[in-house]
């Protein structure tokens, strides 16, 4: 037990540098995911039939394939065709795309749960379609989407660990590295698991705080 703690403290600097990369990677992916998720979600509700079908096919196909595969497609597949991206960039793009299609579904759900009468009312007040979306629908949808969206954020935070498979030096990769250098794999992974757990609990706490801060009292989902 004592030797484990000594070892944990010895490898802590490397692990924390990995945790820092994990944090940066997830901030990028999650931001990209929410931004594109919102656009895709709006497109699935309010766009023309043609765009609707394209967006739906895109979202459904990506939701039906593993994240690891998308990452390999972007890193190895595009690399093979001459577009070689840096591992961290490939991971950011792949994970961002992956999380954006899940976010899109949550945004779609939130937008559709707002009573259609609101859109009709906004249009009859003379607002353009875009302005009705921007000023009437989205401010409500963004609040309604937070519980499901924050689940996806936490999920994606944990899922950044797949970036290890293309050699991004994030927390899991650092655990692998220190494990290999000292031949103490199991203990390295225990340290990684502890750091991940602390970070995930912290992210969950932050999300629930945000959720409480932005709720509008009395606003509920349409039943």
């Amino acid at each position: 037990m004592v030797s484990f703690f000594d070892y944990a403290i010895e490898i802590l600097p490397e692990m924390l540098s990995g945790a820092w990369v994990t944090l940066q990677l997830s901030v990028v992916c999650i931001t990209v995911g929410i931004f594109f998720g919102m656009i895709l979600g709006v497109a699935r509700v309010y766009s023309s039939k043609f765009i609707y079908w394209i967006v739906t096919a895109y979202v459904e196909f990506l939701r039906g394939t593993p994240c690891l595969l998308q990452l390999f497609f972007i890193y190895y597949g595009l690399g093979d065709m001459g577009l070689l991206l840096k591992p961290i960039l490939a991971a950011g793009i792949a994970l961002g795309i992956n999380t954006s299609v899940y976010q899109a579904e949550y945004f779609r759900g939130a937008i559709q749960s707002i009573k259609p009468g609101q859109m009709v009312a906004a249009r009859s007040m003379g607002l353009s379609k875009w302005k009705s979306i921007r000023y009437v629908i989205l401010p409500q949808a963004l609040r309604l989407v937070i519980p499901s969206s924050s689940n996806e954020i936490i999920y994606m935070f944990k899922y950044t660990s797949v970036a290890f498979a293309v050699g991004v030096p994030e927390l899991l990769a650092q655990a692998d590295l220190t494990g290999a250098m000292n031949f103490r794999y199991f203990e390295s992974y225990v340290v990684a698991a502890i750091i991940y757990t602390i970070m995930v609990f912290a992210v969950a706490k932050i999300m629930s705080t945000i959720e409480k801060k932005v709720t509008i009292p009395g606003l509920q989902l349409a039943q």
Binding site: F186, Y189, Y196, V200, F201, A204
Partner: peptide
């Protein structure tokens, strides 16, 4: 449940794989 929820799958995968 909370701990199993918080640990990424890959980390748990390696933990189990490298069990003594």
């Amino acid at each position: 449940r909370k701990f199993l929820w918080a640990i990424p799958q890959l980390v748990l995968l390696f933990l189990v794989f490298y069990l003594p």
